[in-house]
Amino acid sequence: MPRESGDGSFLRRLNHVAVLRSLHDMESATLAGLARQAQISRATAEGIMEILLRDGWAEELTAGSSEGQRGRPARRFAFRAAAGHVAGVSIGASRMVGKVADLSGQIVATATESVPADLPSADRLAAIVRLVERATAAAGLAPGDLTAVGIGTTGVIDGEGRVVKSVVLGDWTGVPLQAELTARLPVPVLVENDMRLAVLAEHWLGAARGRQNVLYLHTGSRIGLGLLFGGVPYRGSHAAAGELGGQRSSRWAAFHHVMDYAMSVDPGELRAPSQAALFAMDRAREGDEKAAAAVESFANALAEGLVTLVTPLDPELVVIGGSLAQAGELLVEPIRRHLGGVSLYAPEVLASELGGDAVCLGAVRYTLNHAERLLFSS
């Protein structure tokens, strides 16, 4: 039975939110369709729609003509995603990325900033603000036009957006990141761990679409982990879920295989672990059997570490992300094979579809979730 708004302001607000949410969730809708979806009368839906049109939250679509159609076509409406925007920022040691999206999640602008890895925290904070300003300007906006800004950063992040500990950025531990950026930007700022945002992005747009229980393994200059349970990133009791070690680069012994190979082939070149892995992967693609064996040993060592997580957590999917995921099946297939041989219920293993954009896109999605909670709150 249709729900009428009556005279109460609370019921009017409930009906308003119901129509707005229905419009947001549908590509387009008629008044009759919105009334059914929101369980209100058509007259109530029409009154609310006039308010949404006036306030810029909805737009009326141009009626198309259909041959043989009789009578006036029903008016159709759509959610106006450009009525609001959010920004997401990923903070890497030497590279930061900022993206601006409308309320449908469409990316409308991207900006990047290169910084020294040893940049002092005060200068890094200034660079983040500068990046947000450049990204919003590229979208034809000012920072104050945003609904909120989401920040993805390495380290343990507490509930107030403070960096409790960071082993990647030396001058980052203890920085009250959310408070510092809130003081510098004219809109709310949200802060979350980068690996949790990466797995959120894969669930939104990447390899984990439609999956509920996912383990995301970041492979690159460090090893990181993101966990998704029931479609929601898992933070743990102390927001430290996914932190795999206390060493500065969070490296696993798995890199020894590719480092030994790189040194044996090119002893005059000193390479970081991730660079050695990429070197071995490139040589393996060219048909070097020793390189292929080193890469497979590297992948098997990663898989052995994953077993200790896969067995108790029972994920349906493992996503391999980070810079080394560009190797694709060269890295993924040995991990898949190893887990298949030892797991009672072997998860599917896929390479990330988002690459280096995962953290920034996760920050966008995290901030969109915040914007939608505000927009659809009763």
Rank of each mutant, 00 (worst) to 15 (best):
residue 7 D to C: 05
residue 11 L to S: 14
residue 11 L to K: 03
residue 13 R to K: 15
residue 15 N to W: 02
residue 25 D to N: 07
residue 28 S to I: 01
residue 40 I to P: 00
residue 53 L to C: 08
residue 56 G to D: 10
residue 58 A to G: 10
residue 69 Q to R: 14
residue 70 R to I: 09
residue 90 S to K: 05
residue 92 G to D: 02
residue 96 M to W: 08
residue 97 V to W: 01
residue 100 V to F: 08
residue 100 V to M: 02
residue 101 A to S: 12
residue 111 A to C: 05
residue 111 A to D: 02
residue 121 S to L: 00
residue 126 A to N: 10
residue 149 V to E: 11
residue 152 G to L: 01
residue 153 T to V: 14
residue 160 E to W: 04
residue 162 R to F: 00
residue 166 S to E: 01
residue 168 V to I: 15
residue 172 W to S: 03
residue 179 A to G: 08
residue 179 A to F: 00
residue 182 T to S: 14
residue 185 L to V: 01
residue 187 V to Y: 12
residue 197 L to H: 01
residue 201 A to W: 04
residue 202 E to C: 11
residue 203 H to I: 03
residue 207 A to D: 07
residue 213 N to Q: 10
residue 214 V to Y: 03
residue 215 L to A: 08
residue 228 L to G: 12
residue 232 V to Y: 01
residue 237 S to A: 15
residue 238 H to D: 12
residue 241 A to M: 11
residue 251 R to T: 14
residue 261 Y to V: 11
residue 265 V to R: 13
residue 274 S to F: 08
residue 276 A to T: 03
residue 279 F to P: 00
residue 280 A to R: 03
residue 281 M to C: 05
residue 282 D to H: 13
residue 312 P to E: 10
residue 313 L to P: 05
residue 321 G to D: 07
residue 326 Q to T: 12
residue 329 E to N: 12
residue 334 P to Y: 09
residue 335 I to K: 11
residue 343 S to K: 00
residue 346 A to M: 11
residue 353 E to C: 14
residue 359 V to Q: 13
residue 367 T to E: 11
